[in-house]
Write a protein that binds this DNA or RNA. Structure first.
Length: 714
DNA sequence: CCGTACAATGTTTTT
DNA sequence: CATTGTACGG
């Protein structure tokens, strides 16, 4: 059935680098395949090779669908496949489940009564809408214990993703709200109606609605089967029942589907992911070929040993037998710092020491359970001028000022998005909840160009009058997104200054970021959808001045699938990791354990486990912290304890040398210098504490004198 | 009816 | 400790 395409693509040498099991996975082209891949077993490489192999065999790239956990990783894999083949693979469809569903719904959503310009709601929008409905139903008056908007949003999403009834969910996880069951039920019904009536979809709707279409229309299943003849799904252990169903229907006609995952790395239970999905796959697709990748290429034996202890203590034992190439390395380190401040200092010292030894900063990562665990460290790194990026913190769209701007864009595209109308109306001078409500009432009866005079008459706000004029001049389908954004910004700036005058400069940087992003898009729809589907991380932009690739700080969830030379896992104390929230529930504790397993298996060579002795507790001051059970249960001979007080001598020397070198006289333009990592280069420029060196190996590079070890050669 | 000053309140992980 | 709700003055 598959014919080899002429002989232009002859180079299959990439297959030879695979081991037996990997190769089998790559070459099993037809029928359902389940790959159980342990941590570091070359899972990504296998997927990439299989993509390349399919294209090599003559499968048109547009007939291949690759579903991954982030759009970034899909893009990366497709690029890598292209490199292997030396052929463009861009036409492979790749992305997350949500982005695929979004794509499909823009095309087929009309079957459920959705126009192709429906608005996507992010978590914050969902909360706002639930809150709006809660108030309008009168549930917020005097009902002190009625759940608040965040909780409501969590309950709703869990209910949908786990496919369980509200009553079951409440009695299992939120017994304190059981008395409100009928009210919450009512609220959720209103919520669903509201979304439908106003062309809105939340994350869950993307899955539900696409699944609904697949279920209802056999001819579409057929059509989709023709379009995506080969389906691959990465990180299958983190899919939920809905996603499993979607795959079942999409692959129904040809059954060419490969899913890859590792049950011991399932860490998304909180959003309904069920690792049983992976075990049930052969039941949904009988005759599934099961392939296990058990050889670990990533980590040293010492790191693997520690990881294996963790997983062997798991309640549910996994049938896996990870073996490595017996690559010897250093035992993992355990550091008991006095408090978070000392831990941060230790890490900063160590990072600089490693960099002085020639390790790239981007080869080092600091991992933690919750985004806020790295606050102290961020302060320390900033103080020392160590560039870093943080993954898993606040997203661009989660900041109020960005949300404001986006709301303007949204109403241009979907005038029925009254949620966004509400937001922008409240921003304007002399408009409060009541006026906003009145305006929306008018808009609902008569959409904009018609209700213009009526609105001008009713609303006493100059700002609003100006906005109306602007609204009518913008052509959202014709102008470039960046141009539209520009016009909106011109209008919004004074409002912005008024509301956020305190952190004006900090926030303006995000706006600049949004502008830069908008320039990559041709249509406003795509731009807005992407902001929700692929939320942009909001990092400290101050580090952007460094040419060097930054150190990585990341939540463990966001570190999935990645690896580094050296990994620090911080905040290893009870209540933080495992998180306080999971302590009462055994299932969630098991998930925390898998999370710890994921964290330690990110490291290739060196692993540092860091736990403070004391932590600051709000009302109580400094108190003793209990070390994480995940550390306590590891026999001490699996790690070596290291004092956080003293760093190794050679490093101290370099610090003093470089500190003397901060004085302007140390280097001058034209000097020849040597850097431990970049090699030799010529000094181009000295700007305050920074120095620009033209390295033979990598061209002009800006370095911070205080923290760089430079040797004068000439 | 708007805007502001103050009190209360709980705190994970992501598409 | 930062966000969210409430009370009050303009």
């Amino acid at each position: 059935m598959l014919r080899r395409v002429k002989n232009t693509l002859t180079d299959l040498s990439f297959l030879e680098e695979l081991n037996q099991a990997q190769r089998e996975a790559v070459e099993s082209i037809e029928g359902p395949v389940l790959v159980i891949a342990g941590a570091g077993s070359g899972k990504t490489r296998t997927l990439v090779c299989r993509l390349a192999y399919l294209v090599y065999l003559g499968v048109p790239p547009e007939n291949i669908l690759l579903l991954t956990f982030t759009r970034r990783s899909a893009k990366e894999m497709i690029e890598r496949a292209g490199t292997l083949l030396q052929k463009d693979c861009d036409r492979i469809t790749g992305g997350t489940f949500h982005s695929l569903c979004h794509l499909m719904l823009r095309q087929y959503g009309h079957l459920l009564g959705y126009s192709s310009t429906f608005t996507l709601l992010d978590r914050g929008d969902v909360e706002d809408l639930l809150n709006l409905l809660k108030t309008s139903l009168g549930f917020s008056d005097n009902k002190k214990r009625f759940p608040k908007k965040q909780t409501l949003a969590s309950i709703y999403s869990k209910m949908i993703n786990k496919l369980i009834s509200l009553e079951d969910l409440l009695s299992e996880e939120y017994p304190q709200f059981l008395e409100y069951l009928p009210m919450i039920e009512r609220l959720f019904t209103e919520y669903q109606n509201y979304k439908r009536e106003h062309q809105l979809m939340d994350y869950d709707d993307l899955l539900i609605n696409w699944l609904e279409i697949l279920k209802r229309y056999p001819q579409i299943r057929q059509e989709i089967g023709e379009r995506f003849k080969f389906i691959m799904v990465d990180e299958y252990q983190d899919t939920n029942t809905l996603q499993g169903e979607i795959i079942r229907y999409m692959a129904e006609s040809h059954r060419n589907v490969m899913v890859v995952g590792d049950d011991s790395q399932s860490i998304y239970g909180f959003r309904g992911a069920n690792f049983r999905n992976i075990l049930d796959f052969p039941k949904i697709f009988p005759d599934t070929k099961i392939i296990k990748l058990e050889q670990n290429y990533r980590s040293t034996q010492q790191i693997l040993d520690l990881a294996n202890i963790t997983i062997s203590n798991a309640k549910w034992k996994y049938k896996k037998n990870l073996f490595s190439l017996k690559r010897e390395g250093e035992k993992p380190f355990l550091i008991r710092a006095f408090d978070d401040t000392e831990a941060s200092r230790f890490i900063a010292d160590k990072v600089l020491e490693l960099r002085n030894k020639g390790l790239k900063l981007s080869q080092i990562a600091v991992l933690f359970r919750s985004a806020y665990h790295s606050y102290e460290l961020e302060v320390e790194l900033t103080k020392r001028g160590i560039p870093f990026v943080k993954y898993g913190g606040l997203k661009l769209l989660e900041s109020a000022h960005i949300k404001d701007l986006v709301s303007f864009l949204r109403v241009l595209l979907n005038p029925h998005d009254y949620l966004s109308w509400n937001r922008i109306l409240l921003l304007m001078e002399n408009i409060g909840p009541r006026t906003a409500e009145r305006v929306i009432g008018i808009l609902k009866q008569e959409p904009l160009p018609f209700s213009l005079s009526k609105l001008k008459f009713t609303v006493n706000s100059r700002e609003f009058q100006r906005f109306l004029e602007l609204f009518l001049t913008i052509r959202p389908y014709e102008e470039a997104p960046s141009g539209i954004l520009g016009q909106i910004w011109e209008f919004y700036e004074p409002i912005f200054q008024r509301i956020y005058y305190e952190e004006y400069h900090k926030r303006v940087k995000d706006i600049e970021g949004l502008f830069a992003l908008s320039e990559k898009y041709l249509t406003l729809e795509e731009f807005l959808a992407d902001l929700v589907l692929e939320p942009i991380e909001l990092f400290e932009q101050e580090n952007a001045t460094f040419d060097e690739e930054p150190l990585v700080l990341s939540t463990i969830h966001s570190a999935k699938g990645l690896e580094w030379h050296t990994v620090f896992v911080i905040s290893l104390i009870e209540g933080r990791f495992p998180s306080l929230h999971s302590l009462k529930n055994e299932e969630e504790l098991e998930e925390e354990r898998r999370l710890f397993y994921v964290a330690v298996t990110r490291a290739r060579e060196q692993l540092y486990l860091v736990a403070p002795l004391m932590i600051y507790v709000p009302g109580e001051g400094k108190t003793f912290a209990k070390i994480s059970r995940f550390i306590a249960e590891i026999p001490p001979n699996y790690y070596q304890e290291l004092s956080s007080k003293k760093t190794s001598e050679p490093y101290k020397n370099t610090l003093t040398t470089s500190e003397t070198s901060t004085s302007r006289s140390a280097f001058k333009v034209g000097d020849l210098v040597r850097h431990p990592h970049f090699g030799e280069g010529e000094v181009l420029e000295i700007i305050g504490e920074k120095i620009k060196v033209n390295f033979v190996s990598r061209g002009p590079t800006l370095l911070h004198l205080k923290y760089t070890y430079l040797e004068l050669i000439s």
